[in-house]
Amino acid sequence: MKINKSYNFHWHILLLIVVLIELWPLLFMVSTSFKTMDQIFAATLNPFPTSFILDNYLRVLHTLPLGSYIINTFIVASGITIAKIFTSLIAGFAFVYYDFRHKETIFNALLFTFFIPITVIIMPNYLLISKMGLLNTPLGVILPQLADGMGIFLMRQTMRGIPKPLIEAGQLENASPWHILTRIMLPLIKPAIFAMGIVFFIDSWNQYFWPLLVLNDKASYTLPIALQMFISAEGGSEWGIAMAVATLTSLPPLLLYLVCQRFIINTFMQSGVKG
C-alpha cells in the first residue's frame, strides 16, 4: 500500500504537541533547579538558565541529610521489590503448577487486594505497625507491602506461557516442585521478572502516602516525603531548592527507565491486555 505522507503529517503535529505538554513540566523542574532566585522570577518562561548555577544543589547538600534520605528510600524500595518478586513468583507458581480446591477464589481474593483503596486500610495498619513498635523504621513501611496482587497476576500469566513438555520432562525425572520452579521455569521467565522488579522498584521509590504516616521522624524520611518540607502555606519561596530535591528524587527512576525502556514498556503493554 502506498503511504500518503501528507495524510500522516497532521497526526505527527498532534502527537508532538502532546509530547511537548508532557515534557514541558519536567523541563521546568530541571531548569528551575539550576536558576538563581532572580532568574526564577524574571525569566520564568525561559527554560534555559542564562547562567547555570549549582547553588541550589549545594544548599540542599548542606542543609539536608540527603545521604540518609537516599539510603532510606533505597532500603524501602529494594526491600519491597525483593519481597514482592519472591512472593509473586512462588504464588504464581502454585497457581500454574497445582490444582487445588477454591483455586480461582483464592486467586481472585489475592488480586482483589490490589484494588483496595489505601486509605481504607491504613488506619488499622497504622495501629498495628505502631503496636509492633515499627514506626519510623523502614521495616514498618515494608511489612504491609510484602506481597502484590498484580505481581501474582503477572507471574501466573508469564508462567502459563511456558511449554508444558518442559515441565513434564522435569516431572519424569522426579524433580521436586522447587527444582522445577528454580531450575526449569525461572531461567525462562527471567526477563519478565526483571521487568516486574523494575516496575516494583520505581513504584516503591516514589511512594508517598504510607511512608508519610509511618515515618514521622525527620531522620527516617524518604525522598518523596522530604519534598513536603519545601511547601509552605503560600506556595513556598525556595523554588530553586525544591526543584533541586525534586530533580534528585526523580533521577533514579528516570535513569532506570531510560536504560530499560523497552523492557518496561513491553511489560506495561502486557499488564493491561487481560485485566
Partner: peptide, 18 residues
C-alpha cells in the same frame, strides 16, 4: 510520553504547585 509515569506524585505535585 511514558516518562512522567516513572516520576513520584510528590514530584509532580511540587512541579505543578509552581
Amino acid at each position: 510520553l511514558f516518562i512522567p509515569s516513572t516520576l513520584s506524585l510528590a514530584v509532580a505535585s511540587i512541579i505543578f504547585l509552581w
